[in-house]
Design a binder for these strands. Structure first.
Length: 479
RNA sequence: CGCGGGGUAGAGCAGUUGGCAGCUCGCCAGGCCCAUAACCUGGAGGUCGUCGGUUCGAAUCCGACCCCCGCAACCA
């Protein structure tokens, strides 16, 4: 039995869950389910990243204890499990004691490797934005959003990580493993970036400036900045460092991350692992972004789509279907209400939903015997596609089968036949539907279970609609 | 000469290694009536951003240009 360790990135909890993260975790969930179905032993990790200035400020703004705020938001992220029907095994929080201890131990290892050093760190800071600004972000030496205000120059001592030391090792890693980052163009992107030279990066902040973080070992004035804290979750989640047998059972991980996370995951984290003397990740899959009507989702544009609201309106499987089948798995994808409804109506209501009604009804009327799913060619194709992160294709294979069944049903017209002949005609069609439902478990677990249950026992009545037409609950869908 | 992704039928998109241009929705016509006014068949509709090149043959390779969208290293 193969061991398969899969982890998402940890979303930052300065705001409610984003549709982009829903995409990431639903894809991860599909992959985890595919591996379980194939008989692998799976550990699926997710969680939340809770430290940092933004979280601290957010809590202050709400008049909450920081930890209380974190507890609240962590719970709202963990709610996604039920909402989106996710199957993860572990939900890690970076405020977990165990994780903090692991982050500190990781720091010590890198320090022992000579890769952590202290240095002056100077940065321009926009008081208006309350954010650090790089020169490339400035216009005429001022923040473009607050041109009237002078930038503050912050000059402090921080710890740095010697990233520059790992350029060659990183290149070697990329070259030795052509599928280390998927899609391939992302590997190319990160390789080019590394080949152009690397600069060390700062990995701590003054406690006085960032009061909410993991303490730097043996330096009460500094806390870790995000990298040495959050990234370490991938190994602290599986027992590093105090449970080596568990760690060795699972590591290295397959990781999934948004394209904004290419560098942290495929570059910084890998170099950090090298420094700590640990094996590199197994593979990193990079998601595109979801745009809303072709534009980037942003609060200022007011076009942010909430995954929670979508699920509350349509249910987990509908949202999962849109994310897995419709959002391009190699590039950015788009969301519009119109497209969402179109996909719902065409593929789910008129497609699978109606087919299930047709076949279920005919099977009931003709007293078809119970059927169990078989593993066939479809299964092989679907599993293979999912393992290659080709979710669109995998779901497409299943829908091809549905179209086939609809077509055969129309051709054979079993409703005109007498019982024995009808049964003979229906049997292979229901078999196809049930076999496809077996594969569908990976993507739409609830729907698949309904279909499998219906045909696995003596049929006692008409099937209930899987996906009602929009006309019938149109008023539920409002902008 | 900063980096990357795009520009294919009215709309949304597929088109791995160059070989008659596809899918879904919408539209038109027919069929069916088991089913969620659903399903099936056929049809109309495209100078594949522009210009040039390579080739027997290019949406696909090469070059130039135009337009759109992200990102521009500590902003998770």
């Amino acid at each position: 039995m193969a061991q398969f360790y899969l982890t998402t990135t940890l979303p930052y909890i300065n705001s409610e869950p984003h549709l982009g993260f829903a995409l990431e975790i639903v894809r991860a969930d599909a992959l985890a389910r595919a591996h379980r179905l194939a008989g692998d032993n799976v550990f699926f990790n997710t969680g939340v990243d809770e430290h940092g200035l933004k979280v601290w400020r957010k809590a202050q703004g709400l008049g909450l204890e920081t930890q209380a705020y974190c507890d609240k938001l962590a719970a709202s992220f963990n709610d996604l499990k039920k909402l989106l029907d996710l199957s993860y095994d572990n939900f890690i929080r970076t405020t977990d004691q165990h994780h903090q201890a692991a982050a500190q131990e990781f720091w010590r290892r890198c320090l022992a490797s000579g890769d952590i050093y202290k240095q002056h760190y100077s940065v321009k800071y926009c008081v208006g934005c309350e954010m650090e600004k790089t020169d490339s972000e400035l216009e005429n030496g001022h923040c473009p959003l607050h041109p009237d205000q002078d930038l503050e120059l912050i000059d402090e001592e921080n710890y740095f990580f010697r990233l520059s030391k790992y350029q060659n090792q990183l290149l070697k890693l990329y070259d030795s493993q052509p599928d280390f980052v998927v899609p391939a163009n992302r590997l190319k992107e990160i390789r080019n970036f590394v080949a152009n030279g690397l600069q060390d990066f700062s990995i701590s902040r003054l406690v006085s400036k960032l009061p909410w973080g993991v303490a730097v070992p043996d330096d009460p004035e500094q806390v870790m900045y995000v990298w040495f804290d959050a990234l370490v979750n991938y190994i602290s989640a599986i027992g590093w460092p105090d449970k080596p047998e568990k760690f060795n059972q699972w590591w290295p991980a397959v990781q999934i991350a948004g394209k904004d996370n290419l560098r942290p995951q495929a570059l910084m984290w890998q170099a950090m692992l090298m420094s700590a003397g640990l094996p590199a990740s197994r593979q990193i899959f990079i998601d595109g972004f979801i745009t809303a009507g072709g534009q980037k989702m942003s609060k200022s544009l007011g076009n942010v789509i909430s995954p929670v609201e979508l699920v509350e309106k349509f249910g987990a499987d509908v949202v999962r279907y849109y994310l897995l089948a419709e959002i391009n798995d190699r590039d950015d994808g788009d969301y519009t209400d119109e497209r969402f409804m179109e996909v719902y109506q065409a593929d789910l209501a008129n497609g699978l939903g109606n087919l299930f009604s047709r076949l279920g009804n005919l099977a009931w009327k003709n007293g078809l015997n119970p059927l169990a799913p078989k593993i066939g060619q479809l299964y092989t194709k679907v599993i293979q596609s999912v393992e290659n992160w080709q979710f669109n294709q995998a779901v497409g294979y299943i829908w091809q089968v549905y179209r086939q069944i609809d077509k055969k049903l129309t051709e054979q017209q079993p409703w005109k036949l007498e019982t024995a002949a009808a049964q003979k005609s229906l049997q292979p069609l229901v078999e196809d539907l049930v076999d496809a439902a077996y594969c569908l478990q990976i993507f739409l677990p609830t729907t698949a279970k309904t279909i499998l249950n219906f045909f696995s026992q003596p049929i006692t009545g008409k099937p209930k609609p899987l996906f009602p037409r929009f006309d019938q609950f149109n008023n539920n869908f409002k902008k």
